[in-house]
Design a protein around this nucleic acid. Structure first.
Lengths: 343, 343
DNA sequence: TTGTAAGCGTTATCAG
DNA sequence: CTGATAACGCTTACAA
């Protein structure tokens, strides 16, 4: 009752006047122990609520049962949902998850990888900061034989498992869907062009138009920055004239919401005048009205898949390494009311 | 170069033909070592990129430098922002954060606490599941001398530091603000009455009205469930008649957003016809228009404060325990356009 | 079937 | 100033 002291194998061995190793075997070992002894030990262990000290085990077995996760920001729907997926898999396999944030700083990311390897994590799952363009901190982990899985923000410089979203297909499908609804003049409002997600989504948009023989109108592709006021201005200028698009593919959540608002200010009806499909990580956007059709990133799945691949690397030391890049598909939450059929 | 092997003190001692203990002292110890020896050791250590093995340290010092966090769901703005705050403080003080989710299950929460104590975490920060109404799993941690801090969802049964939000004051201030804008008929739309946040917020709302001599009209206090359709119906019935409130205090984010939408459907202008202030954890709600004035939970601060209190418990074994309950204030993101002044 | 001893990496105590 | 040695909790040859 209220032991103050955490029970160890030693305590058990003393009480039972057995050697430490016998107790250990009784608890863990296979056959080489008398049944009665085993039962005796196990009973007392249960009584005393004995739990093996994982730290001692780690020291001995040179593994920690901890996997590290480095993300830019935890407080971000995409990241936190991904972590939920990681946690799910890790938990079910007896691993623990330790979180680090890079705060979009390369430097901090490097420090984090060092801390992690010092901590002897069994593996690392990372989505790199947007500053990161060198990867020596990651290759040095691999040299130390710490397995690595990259997700979302990946790079070609590192050979390892990668989990990404098929942004191209997402934009392609969304665009095609609008085309099938009868839309011919679809705008694509997006962010800085140098980002790979921007490029992939744009290609998807363009290829869908091409497939359906719709010419690409460069003036319908708008790149904005993240400042709300300027974003609004860009969107507004596209929709002020009579000759305006009838639909939008919004490349990021914030743009999608600004579109909703600007269009309402312009007294345009959604979706009768303009239909919108936007990439969005925010579950709440489903309950917006005028309705926003959302392209959902499979965040939870990304986490799960990343964790599964990592545990494979950690536990199956067997196969010669053949790394894969898994592309996960998005889903569309189509709000009927946001996708008015043209004609 | 690509060492394959993680350097230990032993490696250094061999290379330098010194004893292990000398090396240890050189690295850590104070004066009792020759300057040259120390420098020699430290130089080689740096060269080899030696990092003390934290697992060995933990085993020796019976502490892990890990703090556990149990939350209902990571993928939830409130929780993830809080964790960000915890991580911030922990990181700066050399601690690591390991995350567990209870998924709102009492059983899983209990298992998590057991795992944590088996893991020898140095402390725990927890927001209990909504199923939890017994607290033996927490008191048993305290018995094992694992310090504990509770946040947001706390209980009176456990004696420890607690960090909560002053929901009462938040609702009071928001309501008073509306009154000062000239509103006399303010609705309070909220959720199930048995929840403590519901009660606190309602009291705040009511007391603000009382203070200003406005009678409380029970029919203006609406409890809804979480089903969107029913929520809409409740809201709608409140605003359909001519004799409708001129303002709303929305007790949770989802309600606030549904209010926006229902009011728009009813062709009511926001804020000219109805002003809205809603509790909201979602930063994106700031960019909604019609504008939503938001009551922001100090999530990041909650995390930071919790971590600070926990580290105090962990590190300052000095003072006789005197536990405090810290009440943090909310902030209001007042959107001018959502708070039309009456008359 | 059981016990002894070494080892995982580190620090602390105690001799030299 | 430096080097053995024990100890942290546990597993696992190897001996008995």
């Amino acid at each position: 009752m209220g032991d103050q002291h955490i029970v160890t194998i030693k305590d058990i061995s003393k009480q039972l006047k057995l050697s430490i190793s016998t107790v250990s075997r009784a608890l863990r070992g296979g056959t080489e122990i008398r049944k009665e002894t085993r039962e005796l030990v196990q009973q007392l262990a249960a009584e005393l609520d004995y739990r093996p000290n994982p730290i001692a085990l780690s020291l001995k077995e040179k593994r920690s049962k901890v996997i590290g996760v480095i993300v830019p920001e935890i407080a971000n729907n995409f990241c936190s949902s991904t972590i939920a997926g990681i946690e799910e898999v890790a938990y079910s396999r007896g691993y623990y998850v330790t979180i680090f944030q890079s705060h979009e700083s390369y430097e901090r990311e490097v420090i984090n990888t060092q801390l992690l390897s010092a901590r002897r994590v069994d593996g690392l799952i990372i989505s790199v900061s947007n500053e990161t363009n060198r990867y020596q901190h990651l290759s040095s982990l691999i040299e130390k034989e710490i397995p690595l899985v990259m997700f979302d923000r990946v790079c070609s410089e590192i050979q390892t498992h990668k989990v990404v979203v098929n942004d191209y297909a997402a934009a392609f499908n969304a665009t095609e869907h609008l085309v099938e609804q009868g839309h011919r003049d679809i705008a694509h409002i997006t962010i800085a062009n140098f980002l790979s997600i921007t490029q992939n989504r744009k290609r998807g948009y363009e290829d869908a138009l091409k497939k359906h023989g719709i010419p690409i109108n460069k003036s319908r592709i708008v790149h904005c920055n993240f400042n709300t006021v300027e974003m609004d201005r860009s969107i507004r200028s596209l929709f002020e004239s009579k000759n305006r698009p009838t639909a939008i593919i919004a490349s990021v959540e914030r743009i999608a919401i600004r579109c909703l608002n600007v269009l309402m200010e312009l007294k345009l009806n959604i979706p009768e005048d303009v239909a919108i499909i936007g990439f969005s990580d925010n579950p709440l956007n489903n309950i917006l009205k005028p309705a926003l059709s959302c392209i959902r990133q499979p965040t939870f799945e990304i986490g799960k898949k990343s964790a599964e691949l990592l545990l494979e690397l950690i536990e199956e030391k067997t196969t010669e390494k053949s790394f894969q890049t898994v592309e996960l598909g998005t889903t569309m939450d189509l709000m009927e009311s946001s996708l008015y059929k043209k004609q």
